[in-house]
């Protein structure tokens, strides 16, 4: 018996979502009276996962896993789950985790629930709370199969430290690679991505034109944030499509979301509802976004944003 967690890494380093997933797996293991085994593919310093509650780490390295390949990765996690006799498999909400999850569910004949926001409400029956209707509601869902797969929503649980010491074990399962091959990868390595960012600074049509994005990027720079935008902004080509957030764009689950010159249409809010703290800067006090925000300034972005940048620079130099 165990709880198995798939831990994602980038260039050998564990992502923060991997640490969060291990912390969460430990929470479930405590409920079930068992321990956590992590699977790590091509990662370094795997024993650090003990800090977050893993008792064992299965280290996997194989040439066929150099590039991400959903079928191959799903087969690795499935073999690990069988070997460890896992009752629960924990995944995250990253694009790659969500790519693996349905394949894994069929391989293990396991019920899968994504976007889970808290620890299970009970272990037997195994009941979890997860967001549905594009974050407009939650469902309490029972997973009835012997093996259960849960996909943890980003930033829902947080990283928790434990003093578990993790043993490591090389693991070389049979890998089925399927027939999907990577031809080329187009990835911006120097920019913080919306998926990884703790803070996201987002601009809307209120900014009038692409030439005014200098201040948005500067604000993002000061905060170490990713930049994003509303849908019309990317439709008009002011910003790349990869920055479009909302129901039809990327979901944002950052700690802080700053919306500048965005009205707060329901489709936009659907994508950013799971961000923790929301700040709105808009010159129209009636803008619907204020109803969904935690903090707001009613004012002209072209005055407020430069002031905010100055203030933050001051704040950073004092708190450095």
């Amino acid at each position: 018996m165990s709880v198995l967690v798939y831990t994602e890494s980038d260039g050998g380093k564990f992502k923060k979502i991997a640490q969060e997933a291990v912390s969460y797996a430990k929470g479930i293991a405590d409920m079930l009276g068992t321990s956590v085994t992590a699977v790590a593919v091509h990662a370094e310093n795997v024993s650090e996962l003990g800090t977050f509650g893993a008792s064992k780490v299965l280290e996997v390295s194989n040439d066929s896993l150099k590039n991400f390949n959903a079928e191959a990765y799903a087969s690795v996690v499935a073999e690990a789950a069988k070997k460890e006799n896992a009752q629960v498999v924990v995944l995250t909400s990253s694009i790659n985790s969500k790519f693996i999850a349905p394949l894994l569910a069929v391989k293990l004949d396991a019920g899968y629930v994504p976007n889970v926001v808290t620890l299970p409400e009970s272990a037997s029956p195994f009941k979890v709370k997860h967001s549905v209707f594009s974050n407009k509601a939650f469902s309490h869902t029972e997973i009835k199969t012997n093996t259960k797969i849960v996909g943890l929503a980003k930033n829902a649980f947080g990283v928790k430290e434990h003093n578990t010491s993790a043993t490591t074990e090389a693991f070389s399962p049979e890998i089925s690679s399927g027939n999907v091959e990577v031809v080329s990868v187009d990835k911006a390595t120097d920019k913080i991505t919306i998926a990884d960012a703790e803070i996201v600074v987002s601009g809307g049509r209120g900014l009038k034109g692409p030439e005014n994005w200098g201040m948005i990027e500067e604000l993002a720079n000061v905060l170490g944030a990713a930049t994003a935008c509303s849908k019309p902004v990317s439709d008009m080509g002011w910003r790349p499509h990869s920055e479009h957030v909302g129901q039809t764009g990327k979901p944002v689950a950052s700690n802080l979301y700053i919306a500048i010159g965005i009205s707060g249409a329901i489709q936009h809010l659907a994508g950013i509802n799971s961000s923790k703290v929301k700040v709105v800067i808009n010159n129209d006090p009636e803008a619907p976004f204020f109803k969904a925000a935690d903090y707001g300034i009613v004012g002209d972005a072209f005055e407020v944003v430069p002031q905010l940048i100055e203030k933050l620079k001051e704040f950073k130099s004092q708190n450095a």
Binding site: G111, Y112, K127, V132, T145, V280, A293, Y295, G296, V298
Partner: peptide
């Protein structure tokens, strides 16, 4: 394999804090 037992709407949000 799974069964939705009950739905829940998020708690209403507190009012925005406006600062000047």
């Amino acid at each position: 394999e799974t069964a939705s037992i009950q739905f829940e709407k998020p708690a209403p949000k507190g009012a925005v804090k406006l600062v000047d």
